[in-house]
């Protein structure tokens, strides 16, 4: 395993059981992601893109095969260690934004730092810096309901950056926003990749978006081409 490798999948399969029916969502995926790469995953609906991303984001466990994050075999980690990995090493961005609607923008961004045990003043300082970085310093005290889709997704990106993770995993981050907002969001991802050398893995249906990545992967029927 080279020192440059940050994520590695070895023969990852995922089988869902719907009653008696078995759904093969992933059929033995092998993948190596290098530090600082910008990868786009394309593929038809139901091909297993989200399932694959959940494996890389350590939200789910494979039925068989292994997922390594920075060389660590995640199948050997307990719930707490997996939580720490999600908190410190990976920033997850959802298509549906998934902000906590009772908290304002600042509090949402500060939340992963709360779980990391960072002091309040430090949390708030860093959260407002991150909101500034995604261009939302004028929306700090807005609740998610009071923000546009594009703004909500930028808050979600700021939240993903809270504990300064090296890997950003995004599942159709532009899927629920218009083209202009999508361009702003992609601009942020590009800067995070080029200026801060963060590893970006995103899923998209949009070829224009995918064209901005360094490497494009195609998925069909649970396998990478």
């Amino acid at each position: 395993m080279s020192a440059e490798e940050i994520v590695r999948l070895e023969g990852v399969t995922k089988v869902y059981h719907m009653g008696k029916v078995e759904v093969q969502a992933l059929r033995g995926v092998n993948l190596s992601v290098k530090r600082g790469e910008f990868i786009a995953i394309l593929g038809p609906s139901g091909s297993g893109k989200s399932t694959l991303l959940n494996m890389m984001g350590c939200l789910d466990k494979p039925t068989s095969g292994k997922v390594f994050i920075e060389g660590t075999d995640t199948s050997r980690l307990n719930d707490n260690e997996l939580a720490a990995l999600r908190r410190e090493k990976i920033g997850f961005v959802f298509q549906q934004f998934n902000l906590i609607h009772t908290l304002n923008a600042l509090e949402n961004v500060a939340l992963p730092m709360l779980f990391a045990g960072i002091r309040r003043t430090e949390r708030m300082k860093r959260a407002s810096e991150l909101l500034q970085k995604v261009g939302l310093s004028h929306r700090v005290y807005h609740k998610p309901m009071e923000l546009s889709g594009g703004e909500q997704q930028r808050v979600a990106i700021a939240r993903a950056l809270a504990n300064n993770p090296e890997i950003i995993v995004a599942d159709e981050p532009t899927g629920n926003v218009d083209t202009d907002a999508g361009n702003v969001i992609m601009g942020i991802f590009e800067r995070l990749n080029s200026e801060e050398r963060r590893t970006i893995i995103l899923v998209t249906h949009d070829f224009d978006i995918a064209a901005r990545a360094h490497r494009k992967l195609r998925m069909t029927d649970g396998a990478l081409l």
Binding site: G57, L59, D79, N80, A83, A84, R86, R87, E88, F92, F94, N98, I100, L111, P112, F115, A116, R159, A160, A162, N163
Partner: peptide, 13 residues
């Protein structure tokens, strides 16, 4: 849903 989100961003059990 909210619990899932919090866990996804690193909340411990």
């Amino acid at each position: 849903h909210e619990i899932g989100v919090m866990k996804a961003i690193g909340a411990r059990n």
